[in-house]
Design a protein around this nucleic acid. Structure first.
Lengths: 243, 243
DNA sequence: AGCTGCTATTGGTATAGATCAAGAATAAGG
DNA sequence: CCTTATTCTTGATCTATACCAATAGCAGCT
């Protein structure tokens, strides 16, 4: 998955932090004045738990997974990141990062140091708003997703995951119909809270039901309707009891 | 559960938004200059999904639950709030609230309008930082908690819930040993993603194991060590596989 | 106070999905 | 290219816990 240079300008202009890169007059220009713009490779770590918090990042291309350390010290995957995502917001809490970020493929990020961020916030009302909005978005998205997992069976979890990926890709101007999973099945299972065997079985089952086609890491969604429908079959009692 | 007036000053001085209520010189004074300070009762709604976002709130006393609407339209509880909690941060995303807040008992909140918030942020670097920190804290806390639930069995979920409550009460200067659950078992079950019967059974089981004592809504933690230990018995494969 | 609806407990059964096991396919490394 | 390690698939059990059902206790309302 290479950096799609034709998408760069639009990505930057949609970026929550764009006011740090473009002045108002420059917004139409193609060449961004990004401060720091670095490339990482598969398995590289952007930062890890406990590391001093000195910057936030925006993923420009590629993908990454974030993880936290559960009580007992094992790795719990907290989410997957795609271009446009704000990364590192967890660090404001304790001036140290609460999660780790590991890249799943060759990726590039914009780095915004804390110093310049605060300076810019003092000046720009729109940046203040954008940053709060960005954090709020992360909060809402992840929370809603994780919460909904709670009351879903495994098939629904996996469907939900695929739909989520699909719509994120659509938003990025990619295909939401055919895409590659850059994470392993183990990662998916860990994230969704189920056994890797169940992930595998469900994928083949969904294939046999003509909902998706899977070949290795590549997924093709054949029947969006069926995929969405499977989500609606909530547990009956949950429906009745939580009114 | 009445408003504990003796705790008000210290609560305000610890508050992330305190710079909006006290000037630097006033911080030692007892009487806060809170803008708006309203009392609600059990089952009252602070705001609900879709409502225009025009203020953030800080819970001063009492407790509340937040909930989102899952895909199929049923209520999914997203968390419980206690004094000191920032509420309404979800609204920055779409200028409308993504969750609802319903009080579980008589409670009071401070209201901070968006206009005055932004004005204050332009001036105060510490407020900027405090707000970002507050949001980051919410993000980390809820995320970590929800994620950890994923790979826990029911007993661990409930233990985790109780431990979480206990430590929050300790932080508030209350007893972390004896406290009242202000939410119903249905709420707990919904939040933890399990059946209400399981909650009930586990509570009685933990009682028979001399870990806790339960009488109606009142919980007394007898053996913190056992309670914590139960969390460590993670599923074995999760441990091995997620390295 | 007495009715009505809400909340909680306890018992019994069925099943989704974790776990154990083995092998195949793919990737990484020399 | 071959060897070794990782990732993924498929099969067979077994267990946690959702689901169904019945009852009891409490709270709110007239």
């Amino acid at each position: 998955m290479s950096i799609n240079t034709t998408q760069r300008p639009s990505l930057c202009q949609q970026c929550a932090m764009s006011s740090m890169c473009f002045s108002q007059a420059e917004k139409s220009k193609v060449e961004p004045k990004v401060r720091s713009h670095k490339v990482y490779h598969k398995s590289d770590v952007l930062f890890s738990v406990g590391q001093t918090f000195d910057a936030i990042y925006i993923l420009r291309s590629g993908s990454a997974k974030s993880s936290v350390l559960a009580n007992s010290g094992y790795e719990q995957i907290g989410g997957f990141h795609y271009p446009g995502d704000l990364i590192g917001l967890d660090g404001f809490d304790n001036r140290a990062h609460a999660q780790s970020i590991k890249f799943l493929e060759t990726s590039s990020v914009c780095r915004i140091g804390l110093g310049e961020l605060d300076k810019a916030m003092a000046i720009s009302a729109s940046l203040r708003f954008n940053l709060l909005q960005g954090m709020s978005h992360v909060l809402n998205d992840e929370n809603k997703f994780l919460l909904s997992l709670n009351n879903m069976n495994s098939a629904q979890r996996l469907s939900s995951f695929l739909i989520d990926l699909s719509s994120r890709f659509e938003e990025l101007g990619r295909s939401g119909k055919v895409f590659d999973l850059t994470m392993t099945r183990v990662d998916i299972a860990n994230y969704l809270g189920m056994a890797i065997e169940t992930v595998s079985r469900l994928l083949t089952q969904m294939q046999s039901e003509q909902i998706i086609e899977v070949e290795k890491r590549r997924v093709r969604i054949i029947d969006f309707e069926k995929l969405n429908q499977s989500l609606l079959q909530e547990r009956e009692t949950s429906l009745l009891r939580t009114a």
